[in-house]
């Protein structure tokens, strides 16, 4: 179903439908994550991928145009790039351990330590939260700073200081 949605996205030229389908794509991906027991990731995918980015894309469409421009270039070069990248990725997965393999490097390094110790060191039942906010607190601080920087960047690019002060006046003009 993911593949079918992706093909439909590529074939459509009405951008409204494309945005809606990419929301569907995100929801399907979230289902996939739930199947693999990664509930936190699935939650994020559903909230961010299907929720907020759909709204932001709709906002962009409202500002620009709702029909895709016909492409003038030959599709061969992008197609070749996609095939080469995809083949490289699939080749890379051949060496990866099977899903759920207890001897995989992910499960033998720091993972067990976190699982064993987080209950009495942190005392938080959700290990994902314990790792994110406590063991990896620096990383999460960095992520927050990235979100902050991204927000500031978009504000500077789109709104501009003058517009930010007085949005109602801008609406009337």
């Amino acid at each position: 179903m993911l593949v079918a949605t992706a093909i439909a996205i590529a074939k459509m030229d009405r951008l409204f439908a494309v945005v809606m389908l990419s929301g569907v794509f995100s929801l399907l991906a979230a289902l996939l994550f739930v199947n693999m027991d990664a509930v936190d990731v699935a939650f994020t995918e559903a909230a961010v991928g299907a929720g907020i980015s759909t709204v932001l894309m709709l906002g962009t469409i409202a500002l620009t145009s709702r029909v895709e421009k016909p492409s003038t270039q030959s599709p061969l070069i992008p197609l070749a790039a996609c095939i080469v990248t995809g083949a490289a990725l699939i080749y890379g997965t051949l060496d990866m351990p099977n899903f759920g393999d207890p001897n995989a490097p992910v499960h033998t390094h720091v993972g067990p330590e976190y699982l064993e110790n987080s209950q009495h060191e942190i005392g938080v039942p959700n290990v994902v939260t314990a790792i994110l906010a406590s063991y990896r607190g620096y990383d999460t601080l960095g992520e927050t700073a990235v979100v902050f920087t991204a927000g500031i960047g978009v504000l500077l690019l789109i709104s501009g200081l003058r517009r930010r002060r007085d949005p109602d006046e801008e609406e009337d003009t």
């Binding site: 709204v55 932001l56 906002g59 620009t64 145009s65 978009v154 504000l155 789109i158």
Partner: peptide, 12 residues
């Protein structure tokens, strides 16, 4: 803030 920035521009 991003939504405000988008929505504050006059829609086409």
């Amino acid at each position: 803030a991003i939504y405000y920035a988008f929505a504050a521009r006059p829609p086409r």
